[in-house]
């Protein structure tokens, strides 16, 4: 892994943990980053935020439905059991904050980017595919007994 990629991953991990501590009230425990497409996380909820600038790519957030409802509930101050239609918007907002914090840190490190609005997919029988030649680094996190993932997908230049 190149120094720039390592720096990007470190800043993405830092951004993700900050967002969860400040907005969700949960400490995330980070595992080892996984490069490539070998491991696809089990997820019913996928949120993506694209970025473009000195580099281009996508930040992707993956979780199960249960984890997404728990996150949405904590974010909105309600019980996960009461979360219903609010979940996709809440996960979109969390992803927007992760990508926004990441973008700010990358800009400070000399890589100015702009980011898109988030898109959220909720379902049980789909996979995400990126058409250009990309490099993928998947970052697994443990949130209490739930697992969530954040992936950095960079277009190869």
């Amino acid at each position: 892994m190149s120094d720039t990629m390592r720096q990007s991953i470190d800043l993405l991990i830092e951004s993700t943990r900050e967002v969860f501590v400040m907005m969700v009230g949960r400490e995330l425990h980070f595992g080892m980053p996984i490069e490539g497409e070998a491991l696809r996380p089990k997820s019913n909820v996928v949120a993506t935020v694209s970025f473009a600038g000195s580099d281009s790519g996508v930040v992707v957030f993956y979780s199960t439905l249960a984890a997404a409802n728990e996150i949405a509930g904590a974010l909105l101050g309600m019980s996960p059991a009461d979360v219903n239609g609010e979940m996709p918007d809440a996960i979109g907002e969390i992803s927007n904050m992760i990508a926004g914090a990441f973008r700010t840190k990358m800009t400070e490190a000399g890589h100015p980017w702009v980011i898109s609005i988030p898109t959220v997919t909720v379902g049980s029988d789909f996979y995400t595919k990126y058409v250009s030649d990309v490099r993928r680094i998947l970052c697994p996190f443990q949130m209490d007994d739930q697992e969530v993932f954040v992936e950095l997908i960079l277009t190869k230049s």
């Binding site: 907005m23 974010l75 909105l76 101050g77 609010e86 918007d89 809440a90 979109g92 907002e93």
Partner: peptide
């Protein structure tokens, strides 16, 4: 414009 952010 985000109802989630307004609620937060």
């Amino acid at each position: 414009d985000s109802s989630t952010m307004r609620r937060i």
